[in-house]
Design a protein around this nucleic acid. Structure first.
Lengths: 230, 230
DNA sequence: TCCCAATCTTGATGCAAATCAATGTGCTTG
DNA sequence: CAAGCACATTGATTTGCATCAAGATTGGGA
């Protein structure tokens, strides 16, 4: 197994349940690309030619409409994106772009769909992966529809913090500009919302956010661990 | 095959690709329930006990947060809902409620997951079905983030209309109250947005909407057939 | 058939976030 | 080191939609 996909422990979960032979067949045709930051991987409206799996770095999925655009999600390491378009062989509804330098595994879309038909482990892993992506979108839509900007930011901060309650410091992993877009705001508005959170014990210093008591933010955003966690 | 699931042509696509034996095993444990209108089928936060497939009638999926709620989608006939929660065995993120009287197929969730592991046809159909649901959500989020209320309504009307351009009449299948919720508005706002569309040749009479020229609405909503169609 | 309740519409007002504009800050790069 | 540039903050203003309130219309049940 070449291509840098050599460590089983860091292997994409999607491919982990495949039979050895089918895995071999699939991996033989895949390649790894290294992309610089801010490089578009694919654009909405086009049919997928590859299934992409992020190996290293950060990729964002975003939607564009005229000159407006909005970030939908940041792709996790070892996660495929966007499976749904590849499975249904339908035009992408989102675009993808690297945020940092990134290494991306590219599996020919047709080959992937063939494997899907032959390999039980793969098709289950695929169903599971899309399910998780689906649930993440439902959470986004819930936040967008039912929460104010202040609540959305509070919610994001709580989600960043491992474990409930207490105080702590968060290091933003993305620019505020992108964070604004991710939670459906303009940068100016994010700035103001951060300011408005100071009365709730949130202090901002660059990309360092210190929170006096996360319970306050949980309450503010009406964070629900059954629904919002994970 | 009892339970009213007797006509292959109207059979849920999800189960169509299953092997006969596995299908039998699964169907033996399923039941069909008949529910009156406005009956909650399941609530967010709870673990799924059944996979539900709508056979007849209308069901809406919605999210609630305190006393605010918002309709996410209306379930189509012969469509499963909400697959993602059943596949991952994780708490529902949405609630479901009948809009009209409805007949719903209920497959025990654990049984379904077992079949998923054994039946290739089922797991592929599942991946495909969730993919479609995923794509529908992306469209929702796109509309919510990037379009104004007026554009969202225009977009909805264009989507209702089969084929591009021309004039025509649309019969709303749902109450305006629900339509408002579906496109992320309050009823009062929907009413005003409808009024504002009169200058673009949209005339409203109860649940009857006549449109002089759909091309005008396509332009207004920046409808994109690659992305928005289907 | 009539009435009650839910839905829908219209008007007046409020508020949250976008927009426009100016300035400040930190990074990169010559 | 300075110049340049993207990012970030702050202020003033506008806008879009929600909210509150009051009728009008519709539809379903006794």
């Amino acid at each position: 197994m070449h291509n840098g996909l050599h460590n089983a422990s860091t292997e994409p979960e999607l491919l982990a349940g495949m039979s050895a032979s089918e895995f071999q067949r699939l991996i033989d045709d895949t390649s790894v690309v290294e992309l610089p930051a801010r490089k578009v991987v694919f654009s909405e409206g086009l049919r997928p030619t590859f299934l992409h799996i992020l190996l290293e770095g950060t990729v964002e999925l975003f939607i564009r409409h005229g000159r407006r655009e909005s970030c939908i999600t940041l792709v996790q390491k070892n996660t495929p994106f966007v499976l749904a378009a590849v499975v249904t062989d339908a035009p992408y509804l989102m675009s993808a772009r690297t945020v940092t330098e990134a290494r991306i595994l590219c599996i020919p879309a047709g080959k992937f769909r063939s494997s899907l038909r032959r390999d039980q482990g793969l098709s289950i892993a695929t169903a599971t992966a899309i399910s998780e992506a689906y649930r993440s979108l439902v959470r986004q839509l819930r936040s967008q529809r039912l929460r104010s900007a202040q609540m959305r930011l509070a919610h994001y901060l709580v989600g960043m913090h491992e474990g409930a309650g207490g105080s702590g410091t968060i290091q933003l992993q993305i620019s505020k500009r992108r964070l604004a877009s991710l939670i459906g705001l303009k940068p100016e508005s994010l700035s103001r919302v951060f300011a408005s959170l100071s009365q709730y014990g949130v202090h901002v210093s660059g990309s360092q956010i210190t929170v006096q008591d996360f319970r306050v933010l949980e309450e503010l955003s009406q964070f629900d661990y059954d629904i919002d966690a994970e």
